[in-house]
Amino acid sequence: MIALGRAFLAATIFFLYLPIVVMVALAFNASPLYTLPFQLTFHWFVVLANNGPLLSATYNSLLIAVATSILATAVGTLASLALNRRSFRGQSLLKVLLLPPIAIPWLITGTAMLVFFFWTGIGRGLHAMLIGHVALAIPYVVLIIGTGMQTLRADLEEAAMSMGSTPVHAFFAVTLPLLAPSIIAALLFAFAVSLDQFVVSYFLATPGVSTLPVEIYTSIRKGFTPEINAISAIFLAVSAILVLIFAQLSNLGGNRDRH
């Protein structure tokens, strides 16, 4: 039975990685029409380096991702502190209000943003995408910091205060250092959420100003070229590294040995 289970698991993982492996492999394949047999080359990465639109889209993606990460984490950490510290009226409602950005299909949120930003004159473009990305990342940040705070004991700040720390000093001396891993995890998560975001970026992009996923999409609509594979392969590698760091920091799927 166990062998059967493992075989099934292996098959599932094969299914999950098959297209990815193929795509990455073809990034190194000489044929511009994706025909096999396989000939190793770095040609397409060179072509990629000269592809203006793809490069500027990559730059935009990174810029927005960094900005999103910082803004969402800052804003989300503050909110998380309020939501997880003291209980007050309306707290559950506020927690529920964090769900719409994640639960509502991004198609609806994205088009809604398009409509609203048009109407209020905010318009489209990088600033609009930033606003959208941060909004989508905030719930995740609140969740991650909140989870981190569960392992934080309230009596540590009390102990600090009993020794002369004002509440503010206690926060900076005790709580913040202990929250550091969660904050870093939130930063990475927000970065990944922004970097991978397609739908909302799609609706808020303008011709000439877009992010990498949007640019890949329009390139695909025009026709396939292997430099898309090249940039996609790089993109995948970056995302994978981020996830691995994040998993390391938060012991995903493993044991929690904090006390």
Partner: peptide
């Protein structure tokens, strides 16, 4: 956690 578009592609 990698880009959905890239995976579809």
């Amino acid at each position: 956690w990698t880009n959905g578009l890239v995976r579809v592609f």
